[in-house]
Each structure stands twice: as structure tokens, then as C-alpha cells.
């Protein structure tokens, strides 16, 4: 087997190193979701560059898609803003390559839908993603039933394939869902679309315990976490806290009437990241069982 460019320091290894470091520090990861290219490429690049210093432990980069079936209005509109501003998958990969000039530690995970990758071609995409310093993929419309499409080739290329587990993923299904998952598991806190619900720490704690029976991977929880207080609550019961819609919303609120970035846009996002990081850091982590 040839060694994929990412397999030593990047890809899955970079995600594992990050969670190992956090385990030593005794805290959960703050995983920040922003839409690549929203509201424009330049602003988006500045936000990504600033996130690690603003407390983001892992960056999830949304790949815009015209038909985001699992997303609520905020992320739908963010994707359209990015598309209007000219984002493409290739430009997203180039932006990550630029980021990697200055940061070799912060994992970057692409999140989105399969079709833009399908259109580029899986081998071409994986080669380009590895070369750009992408570490993992979260693809909403690729369940384990379709692992041969992208999951297995991605693992082969040294990238993590991070699976979503949901409240509807029952005991019978969990082993299949965990089988080819790597990096971390993303637990979706409620059945629904992004931005529509609220994560309840007690319910989440029970779900995390249930998933832990099937995996040794870190478990990050997303959907319905907006505030530092909520982040603190989830950080005490899970290994990672994913925040998305709240970032998109503060970004949107910072735009001018024409939907363009203003002087406050980058800071609005980074300020929220700092507040959330403080919330995560203040969590009392329940001792591992």
C-alpha cells in the first residue's frame, strides 16, 4: 500500500493527536462549524485563520450545497450566500491548504452532502483533500449502507470518516454505524434539522453512555447547542461540543443590508468562539466510568 500524504501527521492522526491532547488537559473539544465561503472567500479565510486562537479545537467546514436536506433555514441561506460569492469545492480545498501554511495542528473536517464530491470524482477529491490538509469528512447523505462510495476509499486515503449517530440509531444498528467510523463519533442530539431544536444534557448523557458501549472513539455532540451555558452542560457529558447555527447566525447579523461582510463580521464569529470555549473549559467533566 502506498502511504497517503496525510497518514503520518495529518488526516486521522491529526484528529487523534488533538483528542489525546484534550484528554491530558481534562477538557472537551470545541468543534466550530462555519460555512466555507460565507459571506465571501476572503472573510471566510480570515475566520478560519482566527478560530484556533479563539478557542476552536476542531474546525468543521461546511461545503455549500444547493439542496441541504438536513439543514434549517440559517445554514441553507449561508450556503446560498457562499455559492453567490463564488465558492466551489476546489476553492474550499485551496483555502484549507492556505490555512495549513500556518497551522499544522488544528484538525479540519469537511461537512456536507455527497453530490459536490461525486461531481469532482471520489479519487480526485480524496487526493486533493489529502494534499490540502483535510483530516476528516462528515457526509450527511452517506449512511453505512453506502460505505463503498466514499467512506472506505477515504479511510484508505488516511482520512477520517466521521459518522453521525442519532436518537433513532437503535442498538441493532449501532455496531454497523460504528464499524467504519474513525476520528470521532458525531452524536446528533435530536431528530430534526440543524437550528431547530435544543440539546438536553441529561438525554445526551444517556445517549453518549449508550454509544460508548459500542466504541472507544471520542463522542462529540452537535445540533441544538448555541450558548456557553449549553456548551458547558454538554461538555460535562461528552468529549466534544459542536456548534454551528449559532455561528452562522452571529455572522449573518453582522452583515450589511446587502448581505456583505462588515468590519465586525470576523470578530463577531471569533467572539462567540471565545465565549463558547470558556463555557466548555468551565465544565465539570464526569469521571470516565
Amino acid at each position: 500500500m502506498t502511504t497517503a500524504p496525510n497518514s503520518k501527521n495529518g488526516g486521522r492522526a491529526r484528529i487523534e493527536a488533538r483528542f489525546a491532547k484534550l484528554r491530558d488537559e481534562g477538557r472537551a473539544a470545541l468543534v466550530t462549524y462555519i460555512m466555507s465561503g460565507d459571506p465571501d472567500l476572503e472573510t471566510s479565510a480570515k475566520i478560519i485563520a482566527g478560530l484556533p486562537a479563539a478557542g476552536a479545537d476542531i474546525i468543521e467546514l461546511g461545503m455549500a450545497f444547493t439542496d441541504p436536506m438536513a439543514d434549517g433555514p440559517s445554514i441553507q441561506v449561508a450556503g446560498l450566500r457562499a455559492l453567490d460569492a463564488g465558492i466551489t469545492l476546489k476553492k474550499t480545498l485551496a483555502m484549507v491548504a492556505d490555512f495549513r501554511q500556518h497551522d499544522m495542528e488544528t484538525p479540519i473536517v469537511l461537512m456536507g452532502y455527497y453530490n459536490p464530491i461525486h461531481a469532482m470524482g471520489v479519487p480526485e477529491f480524496l487526493a486533493a483533500a489529502s494534499a490540502s490538509g483535510i483530516d476528516g469528512l462528515i457526509i450527511v447523505d452517506l449512511p453505512p449502507e453506502e460505505d463503498a462510495e466514499l467512506c472506505l476509499p477515504a479511510l484508505e486515503a488516511g482520512l477520517s470518516f466521521i459518522r453521525l449517530a442519532t436518537p433513532t440509531t437503535d442498538e441493532k444498528r449501532l455496531p454497523a454505524v460504528m464499524a467504519n467510523t474513525s476520528g470521532f463519533v458525531y452524536y446528533v442530539s435530536y431528530a430534526g434539522i440543524t437550528g431547530a431544536g435544543s440539546a438536553d444534557a441529561d438525554t445526551v448523557a444517556a445517549a453518549v453512555a449508550r454509544i460508548q458501549e459500542h466504541t472507544d472513539l471520542p463522542i462529540a455532540v452537535g445540533f441544538g447547542i448555541r450558548t456557553p451555558e449549553q456548551a458547558k452542560g454538554i461538555a460535562s457529558v461528552a468529549d466534544g461540543v459542536v456548534v454551528g447555527t449559532a455561528f452562522i447566525d452571529v455572522l449573518r447579523d453582522s452583515l450589511d443590508a446587502a448581505g456583505k461582510a462588515t468590519a465586525t463580521t470576523v470578530d463577531a464569529v471569533l467572539d462567540l468562539s471565545r465565549d463558547l470555549a470558556a463555557g466548555v473549559a468551565s465544565a465539570n467533566r464526569r469521571a470516565a466510568p
Binding site: M69, A70, D141, E146, R163, L164, T168, R173, V188
Partner: peptide
């Protein structure tokens, strides 16, 4: 069995829906 007609078809659905 996987819902394919040649290369077409399949089950490209979000995990929340898969059990159903």
C-alpha cells in the same frame, strides 16, 4: 438488495431516517 438499478438508486439518506 442495496436498492441499485445498475449504478443508480441506492440509499443516500441521513442516519436519522435510515432505521425507518
Amino acid at each position: 438488495a442495496g436498492g441499485r438499478f445498475g449504478i443508480h438508486g441506492g440509499r443516500f439518506a441521513a442516519e436519522t431516517l435510515m432505521p425507518l
